[in-house]
Design a protein around this nucleic acid. Structure first.
Lengths: 335, 335
DNA sequence: TCTATTTGTTGGAGCGCTCTAATGCTGTAG
DNA sequence: CTACAGCATTAGAGCGCTCCAACAAATAGA
């Protein structure tokens, strides 16, 4: 900076003003400074800057699991809003392990970010509360009653209701739900299923399962004796596992059994899979999370905000009208 | 820090020593300082620290595309080595857009990281060279002749050779390659295919395609008149698209046509897909990249290092011995 | 006993920047 | 011709820390 100032024949303070895009600089000096900076390959030192200004233009993002493409779109949303408002993102990952996640949190916090977005974190609430004492925090895809944090979630009850309504409109009456167990958001989805079935006067059937394709396949094996005409999985992975097990056992999808997933991952869109599923507005999650953070940064809001977004139904090729003769078994299928 | 020093009845410098775990501190003072820090909820300010020490314990990572799970495992590898050596990771993403990637690079650089890992970057070489002037840089899944950067890649020629050899050992003679076009690493894969076919005395058939499932399906449509007995796709997505198109057109996989992918993504492992594919040691990519960076940071090495890792064949259910009667068409298949 | 050496501790400078208050400068009004 | 805005510019203090050289106290060697 010293060098740039010398080269442009001005003071350090003036360089600082130019780098921050202050309007109180004559065009002549501004271009001189910019030219000198360019020639010297100078770019401001973000840390020194935030140390001196006691403010940060950085938003921290903790992605619980980088392997899950779900979060990539949330990050896209965060990124577009942040960039728009002149904020930088720094991302860290927790790998779904509370210990590693805690380290990631600590690392992020040590940069003294203006705000912190936690995407589906698995750390205990106490850790989140502690982080919230140091900076603004928004939780995505995890709810919390902490009065100091904002949350952005989808309305899981409503999402499952869409799935049930869709299947009922196709004539299905025996609709099973492969449950997400302890997983995040499994509870509202289960609740939504039970409520929707009840509202149609149908008998619910909840099958214990998990958020993996192997678990979906196992759950289907447990249903072989008495197969429902439709299955609503707790997520897309689970649905793909279920479809695979169905086909292995001679059931055709969707002719014999309809299957609905949840999340609308890129997997679901593959033409080989073409899964009917429930879409969450992931990009919107990111945008709202960033907005929530920035509102707090700008001091526009103190009270926590709770966003509950509307999911939507994406119909593809794994759902069809219920077979008139009811489900039947075939020889063959895919090997 | 001032407060902690006062509370513990020592100087600021002593607090600094304790926080850095220096051995040159008496146990008595150490515990006193730790106690005071605990009571005051003090934790050192990472930025001030690195500003003062002119050293950074941060490695920057630029992930070109967060949507691709390939990179998640590379990051895992980076993370484990970095953590082991007391370094923190900050991640940023470029979304496969050169402009956004450039911004990400700039942002990362403004934190003055000790090193920078670029995962499959799409920015021009010149930008990479400029970054390399400021800090150590390692390129993953992108080669470069820049003498100032290290690189970590897989041996694509060898990978495809594994695929060809596997198919030949199953009796296949007509093996087509769905080409990745301009995509990264498409060239070595194509070269490997041509060389391997030649070494077996077979006639190569390169079909123009791309790294997407739709492109894989399109390429298969172009082959319908005269279907080979085996297909090697440029990556897993392409292979899944190809399989889908094959089945739509009455070909069974693997009975009529064998298909091999590349990358061994989580997609390939799904039981519904169960794709024979070529695995790249992604975690190892990350580990080696981190090692390369840290070697430079510690001043152990000046000359660039070029890692070329061995891919391996993962046999699943989409390859089988060539049908004795040659490929034939069926009615039906999956709808 | 007195000087070396080691060990533990400290003040103060400085990392690269921002911010406040003060400076010099023009231009307009009295 | 002085007075006083109003503006662009700058010196200097300070952000929270590390590092160095200097120092006091304890230990060792003569």
């Amino acid at each position: 900076m010293e060098d740039v100032a010398a080269r442009a024949g001005v003071s350090r303070a003036l360089v600082s003003l130019v780098m921050r895009g202050s309007p109180k600089v004559s065009d002549q000096r501004r271009t001189a400074v910019l030219k000198a900076a360019e020639e010297l390959g100078y770019s401001p030192h973000a840390m020194a800057r935030s140390l001196a200004s006691r403010t940060s233009h950085v938003l921290g993002v903790m992605v619980s699991d980088l392997h899950n493409a779900f979060f990539a779109e949330v990050v896209d949303g965060l990124d577009s809003v942040a960039t728009e408002q002149g904020f930088d993102l720094i991302i860290n990952t927790g790998g779904r392990s509370p210990a590693r996640e805690r380290r990631a949190l600590q690392s992020l916090l040590s940069f003294r970010p203006a705000g912190l977005a936690l995407l589906s974190p698995v750390v205990p609430t106490a850790d989140i509360g502690r982080a919230a004492d140091q900076t603004s925090v928004v939780l995505v895809a995890r709810s919390s009653r902490l009065s100091t944090v904002d949350t952005v979630n989808d309305d899981g009850e409503r999402g499952i209701t869409l799935a049930v309504d869709h299947l009922v409109s196709l004539g299905h009456k025996r609709i099973a739900h492969l449950d997400g167990g302890e997983g995040t958001q499994a509870a509202p989805r289960r609740r939504g299923y039970l409520a929707a079935m009840a509202s149609h006067g149908l008998t619910p059937q909840v099958v214990a399962s998990e958020y993996t394709d192997a678990a979906g396949a196992r759950a289907v094996h447990g249903l072989l004796d008495d197969m429902p005409s439709a299955i609503i999985s707790c997520n897309d992975f689970n649905a793909v596992g279920a479809i695979s097990a169905l086909e292995d056992n001679g059931y055709r999808v969707p002719e014999d059994v309809s299957v609905v997933g949840y999340d609308n991952t890129s997997l679901a869109a593959l033409r080989h899979i073409s899964l009917t599923t429930i879409d969450q507005p992931r990009n919107e999650f990111g945008r709202l999370a960033a907005e929530a953070l920035l509102q707090r940064v700008r001091g526009e809001r103190e009270e926590p905000v709770r966003h509950l977004l509307h999911p939507s139904l994406v119909v593809r090729s794994t759902t069809a009208p219920v077979a008139t003769a009811g489900p039947r078994r075939h020889a063959g299928g895919i090997s």
